[in-house]
Write a protein that binds this DNA or RNA. Structure first.
Lengths: 380, 380
DNA sequence: ACCATCTAGTAAGGAGTCCTGACCAAAGGA
DNA sequence: TCCTTTGGTCAGGACTCCTTACTAGATGGT
């Protein structure tokens, strides 16, 4: 039995939610406009606005309608309903932003990191970035959404290290670092998953319910979107494709990540791919470059075939430093088109994709937090 | 804006739904029992029962409470609320069942098929099976849920033929065949997907939200369950693993289905696996049998690794004629345990899994149909 | 045999929510 | 100045749900 019990209180809450959402989407509205937008009658809207104003969630903006007819009063969310924190964490540095319930970014700070910074320095950079945006926004930070360049454990939100995959950021628990400045829930996910959500919201996978986003950079990963959601799997490690068996050089079956070892394209003493070396070896018109491109295309093709077989996407999106490189992407596309059950391949197009995806979710989370704010019982 | 508009009608509908669901789960209840179960007050329940009785959805069963206190009246769903059809279609034959809203199977018929029957004979068998159960149930057949032993197109519900995969049932549109006897929606899905749902509901994957069900029989396939749902993908072809690249004999990368050609285990002039030959070649203690088992385990292991990489399941379930065969399953399990990121492997345990899964969904669909039955406006 | 006890269901009244339709207030245009 | 237009309020009514008190009818103890 997980069926909501009907009650008048529930109805009222639904009315208030309608009113709040209308204002979050539009910014400011008169009561008559809210009534027209939501389909709720004018007296009911007036009641709801009074309730929400008394609870401190709404406020008269002071603005008035102009034009024919009686002057109307514009209402908007109260100024102190709080903000949400968005941050992206990678070995290059930390970017932190705050957004309000209208989806507007209100502050931003970037903190760079030197070479091979380690988790301690990264945590400090995160703290620093948050400290820089914090004073520039009014109200509380009611929730945080974090993107990290490593796999994220779904249950704990901690970054995890998988065997034979590079640990780019390192052992870090963003929720712990943010426990001070943020007084609500902290949601952490992998940057590739956020990038996929961003491509679905505004990029080349606009509105596509089933697609696979393949990230080819220093690390290898992908995001699987089915039925309009990124599917994270039990531990949150869905899409960690380093160990997927594919075709290596000379037709041998081997884990995807091993292909780069065979081709001599991994960084020394690391499992990370040497992107500069890869681009140097694979671009151009020489016979060896063509051979390298072919080897990469076959290896990636095996991965794409696996994704198609298991997820049946409508589209495949290529992202990452070398995955989105036109010369290589074209080779992949050509090879993949030859395989049975090929699907369209597109290139990622959203700028700062991980941050964009996390930002959209942060707005949602903040709105939900505002709507579910416990309100005092009406009594006077 | 996809937010429900609040209204009193919606509240009443919710109350009625609570009452109906309580009765569907319990069979018969007095109004006082319904009130206790749902948390709704007794007068409100009485009102709802009166409404629903007048609409013909509920009826006094004639039974009365015994024991201390005033006699109570038992109510139950009306006898003519209809039934749902469940059918499983495979080259072996058709099994048809009807279920009522309580989840009880009320009639069953099986129609066998000869060797290589073809779609026409299969359609006839389906018609015949339905004709046999139809007279044994009162009321309409308000919905149908069908399991088919071939891939199913998600948009149309038709069976589809994939290159290099056996087309076991053949070109068939179950919805068309059933258009006469069934007057509601017809839902068609692959038998492997239904089997996975059954294992999640009552079998070895009980309550597991993320797992992969791998079917190894004449055909090859799998079902991917993430976030508690089977994910079908854009066309409904998620889990069609015949073309997935894996390790073949002598370490060569090749599509999964090709491994069986290399091992000489496919049926003549077909892409179907010769299960008898496979079991003959792989079982026993001879050196060649051990070699064959090893080759199969490596090939399946590559597929499992791909599924783990892309879906991150908590569990893998092996099903199908040779996948659930203990000797082979053990070889697969042993090999898979050696790979990085191994996860537990279990054997399927539900009997008639496809039918069981479809049956459960049929009950749900029927219940929803009854609850959303348009009811006459109260007016006298 | 009688009465206390227990339970299903009803009745009455009240609180709360939403809507319709009439009405009021104030500004712009004719 | 008067009419039109528009935001907002008021009054009344319909409806839903709940609490409290009560009735009906059976059991079980004394």
């Amino acid at each position: 039995m997980s069926l909501a019990k009907p009650s008048l209180e529930m109805l009222r809450a639904l009315t208030d939610e309608n009113v709040l959402r209308a204002l979050m989407e539009e910014g400011r509205l008169t009561r008559a406009e809210i009534a027209a937008r939501t389909g709720i009658s004018k007296p009911t809207v007036s009641d709801s606005v009074r309730r929400l104003s008394e609870a401190g969630l709404l406020a008269d903006t002071g603005e008035r309608t102009t034009g024919r007819g009686r002057v109307g009063t514009y209402y908007s969310l109260a100024a102190d309903t709080g903000a949400a924190l968005v941050a992206s964490i990678s070995p290059d540095g930390v970017v932190a932003e705050t957004v309000d319930a209208f989806g507007t970014a209100t502050a931003r700070a970037e903190v760079g990191l030197g070479r091979a910074p380690g988790p301690h320095a990264t945590a400090q950079a995160l703290t620093e970035a948050v400290a820089r945006v914090r004073p520039r926004v009014p109200g509380r930070l009611r929730t945080a959404v974090i993107s990290a360049a490593d796999p994220v454990d779904r249950a704990t939100g901690r970054l995890v290290h998988l065997p034979d995959a590079p640990f780019l950021v390192g052992d870090l628990d963003p929720a712990e670092v943010l426990a001070g400045p943020v007084d609500g829930a902290v949601l952490v996910d992998n940057d590739i998953n956020w990038a996929a959500r961003a491509e679905r919201a505004t990029g080349c996978a606009l509105g596509v319910d089933d697609f696979v986003y393949v990230h080819l950079g220093e690390g290898l990963g992908c995001a699987v979107v089915t039925d309009a959601e990124v599917r994270r799997g039990h531990h949150g490690l869905a899409g960690e494709i380093a160990h997927l068996y594919t075709a290596g050089p000379r037709g041998r079956a081997m884990p995807f990540i091993e292909v780069f070892a065979e081709l001599g394209l991994r960084r020394a003493a690391s499992t990370a791919i040497d992107v500069d070396a890869l681009l140097g070896a694979a671009l151009g018109d020489s016979a060896t470059a063509r051979r390298t491109r072919g080897a990469l295309a076959r290896a990636v093709g095996g991965v794409l075939a696996a994704a198609v077989a298991l997820a049946d996407p409508r589209l495949i999106v290529l992202g990452g430093l070398w995955g989105a490189e036109p010369g290589i992407a074209e080779a992949i596309r050509e090879h993949f088109a030859e395989l049975p059950r090929s699907v369209p391949v597109a290139a990622a197009q959203v700028a700062e994709p991980a941050l964009a995806g996390a930002r959209a979710r942060a707005v949602e989370a903040l709105r939900t937090a505002i709507i579910t704010t416990p309100r005092p019982e009406a009594s006077d």
